[in-house]
Design a protein around this nucleic acid. Structure first.
Length: 800
RNA sequence: GCUGGCAUGGCGGAAUAGGCAGACGCACAGGACUUAAAAUCCUGGGAUGGUGACAUCGUGAGAGUUCAAGUCUCUCUGCCAGCACCA
């Protein structure tokens, strides 16, 4: 058979999708497998080779599972809300709905041309009313449970996109979307209290099968620290100044305090502060800086001492000065710290700059040079003196603080609440009504979905106001509670909203009574295996785990965690080894590859090119190599004879079945394909094989290159679809060769190789080894002092 | 700075649980077929020396453990990813 991919690929795609052979069955008594890939954002650019690699991993696993008799759910959908579409809509004066529909159609077409075995009857689109109704529903459930709140705050604002960004979307002070500088702006912000789930998100990691690096990234992101809250009295002020510290045992080394420039106590007691103008000037200066600039100026400590105010160390009663400085952030802890310059480098730098005392409380360093942050014996610390173990001294300190009623043990998280609103058009409307009398009121559930109104012009308003604010009929409404005139919230949800729960909707995509039927959830959840990019490990994954844990507490889903297992694919780099980008002109279009080499070649190559989890550059010649391999496979149908294959070939065949079967499970697709190539090479050396062997090879290769396998299957008269044929079984006994070649070393150096019967005993093997001419030569005139034989592996003779 | 990871031929990469380093593919060289080329098939191949059998060296650098180290331990260097004035 020839590999006529242009003919066979459309042929089999049409058959598969017409017969719906990849559709998942509800109510089946087969074991289930739910494989999930990150649904794409349907951009106008169409599919990228990165998509192909990202989907091919679980594609192969899902196809193998089907052949192994599982009921497989392998769905696809579209994360279609978002800025690129909206910006394109503004530019071309087209409605985002139209653009989205065109792009989704284009993406679907492209995905089908690669032959992915998705269930096309379960496609979800986050911008569809039937979908976002439930996104809004979840939001309202959170609102009801007190997990949603509104606050006026300084936010990261992108002047170019005219949109408020979460901390996660503005890392490094750059907008995640357009990469321009982010500025600080005071805005009304809707927050989701994700911090309330911080501990659950942390603990849940113990129950899931994620790679260690992914778990670690999530742990770092959540950023739990344990320590203590301590109240400092401030002279002339009724309020206590509360700080958070991880080292309450260093309290005797505190020589000053620092509070964030935005700290509310400053305004409250403005009249007590002697140099309020200097304070305000400093604060003004800080506000001008972006978060990024603030964190860049690590070396130079700046700040202003608050005149007329002195705090009192609660343990020794010493009076200490209070400063404001921008190295203390309002967003972490209490926005105030006790400074221990002897044992914290930042406090040390500040103390040196401002001439404050430095008192050593932990022995071991030289505090005249730098802060000592290591362990050591506690000194100058009253009841803590003599402690040498950090843990013990901290426990003792907290015990004392609690006894005296001046502090208590506590924890802090780096993770902040999730800023959840955007002033843009193309997103889920936030279903809240602002009533003068009742406050923020939820839109009643029966009115969901709160539809995104139609508009002509989607340009954001002045000062970053949502375009929806310009539609009077939308804004003006009645309060659902009291019936009086009220105003509707005009902000929309961020792009992360829909993707936080989309995997649940695949299970029951058309349900209009609930987000998914509980019986179906019971059968399908959790997601057995979720593959995606490393870039989504901290944001998308944490957000969706948070939503899922909330839904679990609500009783709307049946598992505490959404994803049982997670893996990540590596990037495909351009042929030049750089990241693919339009500006570098090194982008490979997957559809070009399908046209030139065929979908089977593309699929095989992206998995063969290297370790699935690692980045690897595209190589067009290697792509050809994969095509050559598939052509050699296709020609096997012309090599069939009635004779049985040789013993050696049979052994190789069973070894290959074993290797492919196991390698796929570990996502070692490259070695699985390599072993198939090796088998084909051996068959070519003989030039013939029997029909059963061809049948086995077709089924082993089918998950990787399904079109060619279907065609071969048909050619050899196989029943039904190769894609649904039984996965080949191997016979362990037949994977063992009768004889094997092992190395013989003398003093650890390879001197010869010998052929031994598999499993031969030590004496036999040593006999063969010592009989070998080369070994005789190498050991001549020497005494053998030690003989080592590792069964079926190696012989080592130690001689003197 | 902290956390996690990586380093193997000309290139992408293999190497259960310490046991023949370089599987498989690419590129390259030689041969067959062809008027010729492409395609295809066959053969070769880490480096150095030697006509050769063979010898020596060889998995980022340096030490160590071991009969035996790409693999384990320590030190160092370089890259990738994430976090970062987190108190």
């Amino acid at each position: 058979m020839k590999h006529e991919f242009k003919k066979i690929e459309p042929k089999w795609q049409a058959k598969w999708y017409e017969d719906k052979i990849f559709n998942a069955q509800d109510g089946s008594d087969k074991p289930k497998f739910y494989g999930l890939v990150e649904f794409p954002y349907p951009s106008g650019a169409g599919m990228h080779v990165g998509h192909i690699k990202a989907y091919s991993g679980l594609e192969v696993i899902s196809r193998k599972r089907r052949m192994q008799g599982y009921n497989v759910l392998f769905p696809i959908g579209f994360d279609a809300y978002g800025l690129p579409t909206e910006n394109y809509a503004i530019k071309t004066n087209t409605h985002p709905r139209e653009i989205t529909d065109v792009n989704i159609a284009k993406f679907s077409e492209q995905l089908k041309r690669v032959g992915f075995s998705f269930d096309w009857d379960r496609v979800v689109d986050t911008t569809e009313e039937g979908f976002y109704k439930w996104t809004q529903w979840i939001f309202l459930q959170m609102f009801e449970k007190g997990l949603v709140y509104r606050d006026r705050a300084f936010v990261n604002y992108c002047p170019s996109c005219k949109v408020v960004l979460s901390n996660e979307d503005s890392q490094g002070g750059k907008c995640d979307i357009c990469h321009s500088d982010v500025v600080q702006k005071s805005k009304d912000v809707w927050y989701l209290r994700i911090t309330q789930y911080a501990d659950k998100l942390l603990k849940g990691l113990d129950t899931v099968d994620y790679p260690e690096n992914i778990k670690q990234q999530q742990v770092n992101w959540i950023g739990k620290s344990t320590g203590a809250f301590v109240d400092f009295e401030v002279e002339g002020i009724e309020d206590k100044l509360q700080i958070y510290t991880t080292r309450p045992d260093t309290l005797f080394g505190v020589t000053f305090m620092v509070i964030a420039p935005e700290h509310p106590l400053i305004d409250k007691y403005a009249d007590k502060i002697g140099n309020m103008d200097a304070v305000l000037a400093y604060r003004e200066e800080c506000n001008k800086k972006t978060e990024f600039e603030r964190t860049q100026l690590v070396k130079d400590k700046t700040g202003v001492k608050l005149d007329g105010i002195e705090a009192i160390n609660p343990l020794n009663g010493k009076k200490i000065p209070v400063f404001i400085a921008d190295y203390v952030m309002m967003g972490y802890g209490t926005g105030a710290i006790m400074a221990v310059p002897a044992h914290d480098q930042r406090d040390y730098d500040f103390a040196k700059a401002f001439g404050v005392d430095i008192i050593e409380v932990i022995k071991g360093g030289d505090i005249s040079v730098e802060a000592y942050t290591g362990d050591g014996e506690m000194v100058n610390s009253d009841f803590l003196n003599g402690f040498t173990n950090k843990k013990d001294s901290i426990v003792r300190a907290i015990e004392e603080l609690e006894k005296l009623g001046i502090g208590k043990g506590g924890v802090q998280f780096k993770m902040k609440d999730w800023a959840f609103n955007r002033q843009r058009y193309w997103g889920e409307p936030i279903p809240i009504v602002h009533c003068e009398y009742c406050g923020d009121v939820a839109v009643p559930y029966e009115e969901l979905p709160l539809k995104l109104p139609n508009m002509e012009n989607f340009e954001p308003g002045q000062g970053g106001e949502s375009p929806l604010a310009r539609i009077d009929e939308y804004v003006n409404c009645k309060c659902p509670k009291c019936g009086k005139d009220a105003k509707r919230e005009t902000d929309t949800m961020p792009q992360w909203a829909g993707s936080s729960w989309y995997y649940l909707r695949y299970i029951d995509p058309k349900n209009d009574k609930c987000l998914a039927d509980m019986d179906k959830l019971n059968y399908w959840m959790p997601v057995d295996w979720y593959n995606g990019g490393m870039e989504h490990v901290t944001r998308h994954m944490i957000y969706s785990r948070f939503w899922h844990q909330f839904l679990y507490d609500l009783g709307a889903v049946n598992t505490p965690e959404p994803y049982a297992k997670r893996s990540a694919q590596g990037l495909i780099l351009g042929p030049d080894g750089d990241k693919m980008s339009k500006s570098k002109g090194n982008v490979i279009d997957p559809l070009d590859i399908v046209d030139i080499y065929g979908a089977d070649t593309l699929r095989t190559y992206v998995l063969f090119m290297g370790d699935y989890g690692a980045a690897a550059p595209w190589n067009d010649s290697s792509t050809k190599g994969c095509k050559r391999f598939l052509e050699r496979v296709a020609a096997l149908t012309d090599m069939i004879t009635d004779e049985p294959i040789s013993k050696d070939l049979e052994t190789k065949l069973h070894q290959t079945i074993k290797k492919v079967t196991h390698d796929i499970e570990e996502m070692k697709f490259n070695t699985a394909i390599a072993s198939l190539m090796g088998l084909i090479n051996d068959i070519y050396a003989v030039g013939k094989l029997d029909k059963e062997s061809v049948s086995i090879i077709i089924r082993l290769l089918c998950p990787f290159a399904p079109h060619i396998c279907e065609e071969m299957w048909e050619t050899i008269g196989g029943e039904g679809y190769a894609s649904l044929a039984a996965w080949p079984e191997y016979d362990e006994a037949k994977t063992v060769n009768d004889t094997i070649e092992i190395g013989v070393q003398v003093n650890g150096k390879l001197r010869s190789t010998i052929v031994i019967p598999t499993g031969a005993d030590k004496d036999t093997v040593l006999g063969i080894a010592k009989d070998d001419e080369k070994i005789k030569f190498a050991t001549e005139g020497k005494t053998i002092v030690k003989e080592i034989y590792v069964p079926n592996k190696i012989v080592n003779l130690v001689v003197k």
